[in-house]
């Protein structure tokens, strides 16, 4: 098992390295001149050239990549003179557009996205698995039909539509909720909660529909397994059979998919954050796209990749703990 974890982690690091090089290369290969983007339309060539040197865009690609990576671990100072800007480790670049270190932008936005992602995750897992289990156990009866209808709605409605609809209903018409205005959980937990309840629900509704189907089909499949029949033949009480035999087997593969989905969401729920006006990573990314703010885009891409690679490794290792067949191979 230890060897398995070590090997899996080693591969994750290698993969991250490859992904980071690739990301960096894509952005440097863009036709846009990153230095020209650092100042407005009527920029003097001298300023552009000065900025190019300050930001290191004059160096060869490998050297740029090297200093970026080094910056992540030890921090980085842009420019040599007193006007130089220092970004402390982990430095992820400097946004000229916003005159701010990318790392501090990320530090502000990541907690927002994390709040959205984890809340939605908990909600959809609980809801999806509960409803999926119910649908499988009452197959062909009304809980099953309800779950089917629910899934279809969740899958066919786009998130912006559901988002706007919920704002319209809960905030504007019925005024049950105040207009979402994000504050940190440490500042005012109640306001934090009221701001997030709608985005959580919308995201959860969308993903829950997938998990309802995964759970339902997984359970129905496991119910046909010979070992479940043997469990019944042994005289296991139904509740114990469902929990110890059916759910254990049906949910193990689902847990792994869930890990990846969560990681994906941590990279920023772009549409949802925009609809609910939440200052998260997704919104930061969108703004960066609009303003051609390359350093931010490089950073958010790398962060998303980091989450996904780490989640993949984590899920694989988890699988080893959950399924003895993987563990002792």
């Amino acid at each position: 098992m230890f060897y398995f974890i070590a090997r899996r982690s080693f591969f994750a690091v290698i993969l991250l390295f490859v992904v980071s090089i690739f990301t960096f290369w894509i952005f440097s290969a863009l036709p846009a001149d990153p230095a020209a983007l650092t100042c407005g339309k009527n920029c003097r060539p001298e300023v552009i050239e000065a900025n190019r040197i300050r930001l290191g865009y004059d160096k060869p690609f490998i050297e740029q990549y090297g200093s970026y990576m080094k910056g992540i671990f030890v921090g980085r100072t842009y420019g040599e003179d007193e006007s130089g800007v220092h970004c402390a480790a982990p430095s992820l670049g400097y946004s000229y557009d916003r005159h701010e270190c990318v790392s501090s932008l990320v530090a502000k936005t990541l907690p927002v996205t994390a709040s959205i992602a984890f809340g939605a995750f908990v909600l959809w897992m609980v809801f999806g698995i509960a409803l999926g289990t119910l649908a499988a156990l009452r197959r062909g009866k009304w809980p099953d039909h309800f779950a089917t209808v629910f899934s279809v709605i969740g899958i066919s409605f786009p998130s912006f539509f559901l988002g706007l609809l919920s704002v319209l209903f809960f905030v504007i018409w019925t005024k049950i909720l105040p207009f979402p205005n994000y504050v940190g959980i440490t500042e005012n937990p109640f306001e934090w909660f009221t701001a997030l309840i709608l985005p959580w629900s919308v995201l959860a509704l969308l993903s829950a529909s997938t998990y309802i189907r995964l759970t339902r089909n997984g359970i129905l499949e496991v119910m046909n397994e010979e070992f479940v029949r043997l469990g019944i033949a042994k005289g296991l009480p139904r509740k114990k059979l469902i929990v110890k035999y059916v759910l254990r087997a049906a949910l193990t593969p689902i847990a792994t998919i869930a890990g990846i989905d969560l990681a994906f969401l941590l990279g920023g729920a772009i549409v949802t954050e925009s609809v609910f006006n939440l200052p998260g990573l997704g919104k930061l990314t969108i703004a960066a796209v609009v303003n051609s703010d390359l350093p931010i885009l490089v950073a958010t891409t790398l962060i998303s990749a980091l989450f996904i690679v780490v989640a993949n490794a984590f899920v694989d290792i988890m699988y080893g703990f959950l399924d003895p067949r993987v563990r002792t191979k």
């Binding site: 010979e226 043997l230 019944i232 042994k234 005289g235």
Partner: peptide
Amino acid sequence: VRKMRGSDVAMIFQDPLTALNPFY
């Protein structure tokens, strides 16, 4: 029936490879 299964009447199946719960 549940109380009868496995105590008074027991059963063995065809495929021993799939008859046991792989998780325990």
